[in-house]
């Protein structure tokens, strides 16, 4: 057994799914056996700035940070926590990408944005605010990925390389066993009429699926439930902008009509609704554009 690691979990906000995903880990007991817990805070009120300040700098071996970061207060807390920890894990989609909360960054003219502004800022991924050593993707992180993190971080003798993402380097499609027909995208379909055929690739059927641009490792569970991948694990390695990447894939699936006006193609592309909610569901705050701006509206 390696030396006891000192670990901490912090979720300043968020839905509580991340802390549950860790609590439900079958390796939890082993992990806790081999570790000291510095703190386990599941909401911002659980731990004050003062209390964090009193901890030794770099006294925590691994800090798991869940939930989104937004205004000054949460940024200050994140920075303070960073000082106290040797390694920081961005735990779950909110810390990794801003998560669903990030969509508030893009809501047009919304009261919400005013509120956000008054609150001191827009949603940001943790890595925009502090250095992040590891990423555990997912909303909440799927069990297999949690297990991998626990094993590599807490049960192994050596630490994983900085930059490790506890997921597959391949896309979700690699774990999806639906049949491919390589159909062109001639019509965008939604769940209105009927759910899709559960055995055929969703894109082949005209349903938007983020599988090709999303990091795998989840076992493609959503596809098994006959729902498209909505991208919770963030972009595949090497891709910066997950939303841009899926839009690019969709555009390339639309067959060229030969008509140079592109009218027919545009009709297909125009039928994609709620572009931001579809392409950037979890990653709007981590996108290259980050938030809605006012370009002389």
């Amino acid at each position: 057994m390696p030396n006891k690691k000192r670990l901490a979990f912090y979720a300043g906000s968020g839905c509580g799914g991340c802390s549950q995903s860790l609590m439900l880990s079958p390796s939890l007991a082993t992990m806790l056996d081999g570790a000291d817990i510095a703190f386990w805070a599941t909401r911002s009120g659980d731990l004050t700035e003062d209390e964090i300040s009193q901890l030794d700098d770099k006294g925590i071996d691994v800090l798991m940070f869940a939930g989104p970061v937004d205004g000054e207060a949460s940024i200050a807390t994140a920075k303070l926590l960073r000082r106290k920890a040797k390694r920081v894990v961005a735990y779950g989609a909110c810390a990794h990408l801003g998560g669903l909360c990030g969509l508030t960054n893009v809501i047009p003219g919304a009261k919400l944005r005013e509120l956000a502004e008054r609150n001191g800022g827009f949603i940001k991924p943790l890595s925009a605010v502090i250095e992040v050593d590891y990423v555990l993707p997912g909303c909440p992180p799927p069990q297999g990925m949690v297990e991998r993190m626990v094993k590599e971080l807490f049960l192994a003798d050596d630490v994983p390389d900085v930059g490790t993402v506890f997921a597959s380097s391949k896309g979700v499609c690699a774990q999806c066993d639906r049949k491919h027909l390589n159909n062109p995208l001639e019509e965008i379909r939604r769940f209105h009429a009927a759910p899709p055929d559960p055995d055929i690739c969703l894109l082949d059927q005209g349903y938007i699926c983020l599988g090709p641009v999303t990091r795998g490792g989840c076992g493609a569970v959503c596809l098994e439930a006959n729902r498209p991948c909505t991208g919770c694990a963030g972009p595949t390695a090497g891709v910066l902008d997950q939303g841009g990447a899926i839009l690019q894939s969709l555009a390339s699936l639309v067959p060229l009509s030969g008509d140079i006006s592109g009218e027919k193609e545009h009709r297909v592309l125009d039928s994609i609704q709620d572009i931001v909610g579809t392409a950037y569901k979890y990653s709007a705050a981590a996108s290259l554009l980050k938030r809605r701006v006012n370009d002389g509206e």
């Binding site: 839905c15 509580g16 799914g17 991340c18 549950q20 998560g99 669903l100 969509l103 508030t104 809501i107 919304a110 009261k111 919400l112 509120l115 909303c139 909440p140 939604r190 769940f191 209105h192 729902r227 909505t230 609704q273 709620d274 909610g277 579809t278 569901k281």
Partner: peptide, 28 residues
């Protein structure tokens, strides 16, 4: 209330059950 409504405005109906369950994972 308003915040919730403006968050949901413009979203696809079939996605709604995915958004709301992340309000609180304890009773997702």
């Amino acid at each position: 209330r308003e915040a919730f409504s403006s968050y949901m405005r413009g979203r696809l109906a079939e996605d709604v059950p995915l958004y709301v369950q992340r309000i609180d994972a304890h009773c997702a």
